[in-house]
């Protein structure tokens, strides 16, 4: 097995971990404020498409990243209006949004190129720069949550929204802002996926990475650093899978297709304590009811 852990495999692991890490960081923000955003996968898809279209339109992948961030923000506004302002069921809304995103991105992508010609590839951003972005965002999210009063209010909105309300903060505004911010990062994550080494968009390009990010947030007990570490673990499995697919082994390669998801499942089993869960996660806040 020692030949598996080559430098190339490790580089691939980091490459595959980057979008998942970014999405997980976004979800940490949303969930800490009490919003369970199952629309994460959908927002990533919209971000990925925006990143692709933004890059094909401008020729600059950095503007593609910006488009992804904007698309994510827009998704965040829609989801915040539904989940936080209108207090629709968060689980049902998130699911519905992701289902919508799968169809809508496919549709918009089909419109974006002429049938018969292959969709154009886009120039890619260097891996190192994307890693730097992840590290910067990780530091910012950690600082926000652990070292600022904004972060305290945000976490309190997820643990004791009644207390936050009594202190004179608007729970709806706090949660709405966290939802928008979290989805903005998820949109950026999608754009990083296509504007990175991949360099193209395909139908359902995220392939469940948003769901993996959701699982990682639980695994990480809502801590940003651990979420990124979890993403690296996922990236490593994914990289091994790609590496082993290319080599002739007696093991069927489909096992490695399933491996990243199986490892995520096992990671969920390792986490035994429940105490870190934000107490009011997925519970809509109605003043005077809690």
């Amino acid at each position: 097995m020692d030949t598996l852990f080559t430098l190339a495999t490790l580089a691939a692991a980091i490459r595959l971990a980057v979008p998942v890490a970014m999405a997980a960081l976004g979800e940490v923000i949303a969930e800490r404020s009490g919003v369970l955003n199952l629309g994460l996968e959908g927002t990533m898809l919209f971000g990925a498409l925006a990143g692709y279209l933004g890059t094909t339109a401008t020729g600059t992948p950095w503007l593609g990243l910006g488009s992804g961030l904007l698309a994510g923000t827009a998704c965040g506004v829609v989801l915040a209006l539904l989940m936080v302002v209108a207090r629709a069921d968060q689980i049902v809304t998130g699911l519905a949004f992701t289902l919508f995103a799968i169809s809508a991105t496919t549709y918009l992508f089909e419109l974006s190129y002429t049938i018969g010609e292959p969709p154009p590839r886009i120039p890619s951003i260097d891996m190192l720069e994307l890693v730097v972005i992840v590290i910067v965002v990780l530091a910012a999210v950690w600082f926000l949550l652990a070292r600022t009063s904004v972060g305290l209010v945000l976490s309190a909105a997820g643990d004791a929204p009644g207390a936050v309300d009594a202190l004179g903060y608007r729970v709806t505004n706090v949660r709405g802002a966290a939802t928008v911010a979290g989805n903005a990062l998820a949109g950026l994550a999608g754009a990083m996926l296509v504007c990175g080494p991949l360099g193209l968009f395909v139908q359902n390009v995220t392939a469940g990475r948003g769901w993996v990010a959701l699982a990682l947030v639980v695994f990480a007990r809502w801590r940003p650093g651990r979420a990124v570490a979890g993403a690296l673990l996922f990236g490593l499995c994914d990289a091994l899978q790609l590496r082993l697919q290319g080599t002739a082994t007696a093991i069927p390669y489909e096992i490695f297709l399933a491996l990243p998801y199986l490892v995520t499942l096992v990671a969920l089993m390792v986490r035994a304590k429940r105490s870190a869960t934000p107490a009011a996660l997925a519970v809509p806040f109605v003043r005077g009811r809690s």
Binding site: I255, L257, Y261, L262, L265
Partner: peptide
């Protein structure tokens, strides 16, 4: 293990697809 059905059921879809 307290692992949410939402997530585990979704992850198993990918395992079933591989199978």
């Amino acid at each position: 293990f307290g692992a949410s059905v939402v997530i585990t059921s979704l992850l198993l879809n990918y395992v079933a697809a591989a199978a």
